[in-house]
């Protein structure tokens, strides 16, 4: 699996998680992967079920929402110049500084199992997280995750 050129934003300068979620979500809408209401659904879900993960050395967020908002399963990616704060998954009061975002557009529980597991493997590797934060192009991103996502 590779991340589509149109679905990756490298070294994004953003002020808030909402801004990042809107930018990535509109890429997914523009490319026809998800329905119009996807962004609103993602934003709502992030409040009810936060997706920030306290990985090392930088936090990662994996925003996603219900499968009925999705036409075709895929993953969008953003690396941030400066961190934005997400609520930590499993909490409603702990914040985590996030510099990598993998926005998951998932239709079914099983169709992306392998990709999801590989992705979680990647972000558990501090060296890989550091490299992903410093990535300079989509090509380099896909080289880095080749065989791993």
């Amino acid at each position: 699996m590779r991340i589509e050129e149109e679905l990756a934003i490298i070294e994004l300068e953003a002020d808030s998680k909402e801004q990042v979620l809107q930018l990535l979500g509109s890429r997914l809408i523009d490319q026809g992967y998800v329905k119009e209401g996807f962004i609103e659904s993602i934003l709502k879900r992030e409040v009810a079920y936060p997706t920030g993960l306290p990985t090392e050395p930088y936090g990662v967020a994996i925003p996603h929402t219900d499968g009925d908002m999705v036409h075709r399963s895929t993953v969008a990616f953003a690396s941030l110049k400066n961190p934005v704060q997400f609520l930590m998954m499993g909490t409603d009061d702990k914040l985590v500084d996030v510099q990598l975002i993998f926005m998951l557009a998932l239709k079914n529980p099983d169709d992306q199992l392998e990709m999801l597991q590989k992705l979680m493997g990647l972000i558990q590797d501090p060296e890989m997280v550091s490299k992903l934060v410093r990535i300079e192009s989509v090509g380099a991103l896909n080289e880095l995750v080749a065989g791993k996502v």
Partner: peptide, 16 residues
């Protein structure tokens, strides 16, 4: 369980 029953619970299930 997770919020959607699709994403993170799938990963956790695989590991468990």
């Amino acid at each position: 369980m997770c919020g959607t029953g699709i994403a993170t619970s799938t990963v956790v299930k695989g590991k468990v």
